[in-house]
Design a protein around this nucleic acid. Structure first.
Lengths: 350, 350
DNA sequence: CTGAAAGCGCTTACAG
DNA sequence: CTGAAAGCGCTTACAG
């Protein structure tokens, strides 16, 4: 038999403390205007009965609608990456509409300083209850965060690497370790030779992020596979012709290249090069589960993609705000995203 | 500015339809005792206002407590695997206690027919609202499922491979594809030679599951790497001495073995063998993120573990019941678990 | 077949 | 500083 003990409610607490419902409510929420004596009586009763408030009834009666903001780069021809966290955010939005939660997105083109600033101002002047954003993308971020802190408006970072301690939660990606992982995957395939690191660098790239990943692979090889060396090239011109010129030369100068590592999601650019070259001996490892990248996984040009659950990150970020603001539960300040390995025989299930 | 449109409620519907709240409620829940005319008026009003019931208010007023059952093998010395889904189930339980949901677990020792039967009877005679279970583990399962179907008690499979169409949801693991994935991972490391498949078979093992995985790797190699052959050994005696005798012989008879594939979570048994042998040229791939397996990942004896998010499966299963029974939302009948690849440089974040 | 009223657990004005 | 009453949106007896 299942027992159905009735949970204790405010009424029980009020009765035991010998005060009114309103007083219990005031104590419960630390509202002013309660005598020390009443406060104590109520606290005692709460403790004795082990009272747990019913958050849902509370929300029903408050008739509050929560609005969460999400400040993200727009999907662009340069990169479809940001569509993924957005998708997760929208999924959470849909799931939470039961609970009177709405998400309002603030999108901007990466690099468009004016648009970023405009969106930040919109957020500052809005009455959202919480915010999801990506790490510092411009100086204006500081203003935004300061505003949030002053208003006690909680914010959650996704795609983070910035250890912001004032955020409600920071969803962090292990960058260094992802570089190490790439090194380990390469070393599973070959024991000597050279790995070419191609950094397709666009204006918005953070050098810190890229360099941390590269340090990971370099350290790994130094320690574990000293027979594999490293060579790095930065490419800023993304048309296939320039890429061909540069990479052709690099490969003919370095016939011992066994692997190519691309420390961001732009691995498609080099995959295209290898596709047209009809060359397949060199192992390719890069980042992110984008449609185009998966195409190259399918036809055996890319060997591994390291992925960081971007959709899940967006979903989780909204859930963290919900948990904190609506359910009044504790939220871990730091969440570390697993490093997923995507390859030909598992990408369909990701 | 954020708009705060008041959502429509039963009262609005009642007013527009010109009937009482109670009638709206009756129509809403298909309760008998409503005239066709009233029904029509209410339906029209619902449609016109695009009324969405507030499930949480509904639950509050119903004062119903939901109890979900979970029928799982107990953690044993043989295997700690089942502790993981259980952990996920408990996490969901904790999260959902806000919503008046409780989980009751029914555990049994694998192989103990009497205990299984006893637990099944307990479930049949309980008044749980839904059930999480693993696929058919004995003939008695049929009785349990029939009972659930008759009572319209929804059930969710985890760790499933059984395509049960009557379940509310079946959380399925791609077995064949996981074998293929193992093949692909091996083929990344070597191009010829032999893969030894060791099936550590205990009484509860399902041949179908093991054979499907093995078919996956065999088919993959046949198609893509015909220079790699396969050899399979079944081992039923799990003490290290017998294992040593069998594997020593297999390896000396087959000096071309480059990889060992273990199609279940018992990879630790062979990892221990290799550890004591101090031999490291042979690549080891097996299943499941168990503590002991991760130990062997750390010290480079196991190369890859294929994992199926057991904790997540348990968590999701409870969430599916919640979504269906409490939130009255649609639930996808089939969920396919991603195939995670665990290796030395990412296992710490899993 | 139908509806008015009370209640779920909590909060919010309002009056004292 | 305190409490009685009304209300959030929905459901459940109960009376007709």
């Amino acid at each position: 038999m299942i027992e159905n003990k009735k949970p204790v409610n405010v009424k029980d607490v009020a009765k035991l403390a010998n005060v009114s419902l309103a007083s219990v409510d005031r104590v419960l929420h630390n509202r002013p205007g309660v005598s020390a004596k009443t406060k104590e009586k109520v606290h005692k009763a709460i403790k004795k009965l082990n009272y747990q408030p019913n958050i849902l009834a509370s929300n029903l009666s408050k008739k509050k609608t929560y609005v969460f903001g999400a400040l993200l780069p727009r999907v662009s021809s340069q990169s479809s990456y940001w569509g993924l966290p957005l998708k997760g955010i929208q999924k959470a939005d849909k799931e939470l509409d039961q609970y009177a939660v709405k998400v309002k997105t603030f999108l901007y083109d990466q690099g468009e300083k004016n648009e970023i600033r405009a969106q930040i101002l919109k957020i500052i002047n809005s009455n959202i209850d919480g915010l999801v954003l990506t790490p510092k993308f411009a100086d204006d971020t500081e203003i935004l965060l300061q505003d949030c802190n002053e208003k006690q408006r909680p914010y959650v970072f996704i795609d983070s690497n910035n250890q912001d301690k004032k955020s409600l939660c920071s969803i962090e990606q292990p960058l260094y370790e992802s570089g190490q992982l790439a090194g380990q995957l390469f070393s599973f395939g070959f024991q000597k030779g050279k790995i070419l690191i191609l950094h397709f660098k666009d204006a918005m790239d953070s050098n810190v992020i890229i360099n941390t990943k590269i340090k990971g692979i370099v350290d790994f090889l130094k320690e574990v596979k000293s027979n594999i060396s490293i060579m790095k090239i930065v490419i800023s011109d993304f048309d296939q012709k320039s890429i061909k010129t540069i990479v052709d030369k690099a490969l003919s100068d370095n016939p011992d290249v066994n692997g190519v590592f691309i420390p961001n999601s732009k691995i498609g650019l080099i995959a295209k090069y290898f596709e047209s070259k009809n060359e397949n001996k060199i192992q390719l490892i890069g980042y992110d589960y984008l449609d185009e990248n998966c195409g190259y996984i399918e036809n055996d040009i890319i060997d591994f993609l390291i992925c960081q659950k971007p959709e899940w990150q967006g979903y989780q970020a909204i859930q963290k705000l919900f948990k904190h603001l609506v359910l009044k539960r504790d939220v871990k300040q730091k969440v570390i995203v697993p490093l997923d390995i995507i390859t030909k025989k598992n990408y369909k299930f990701y």
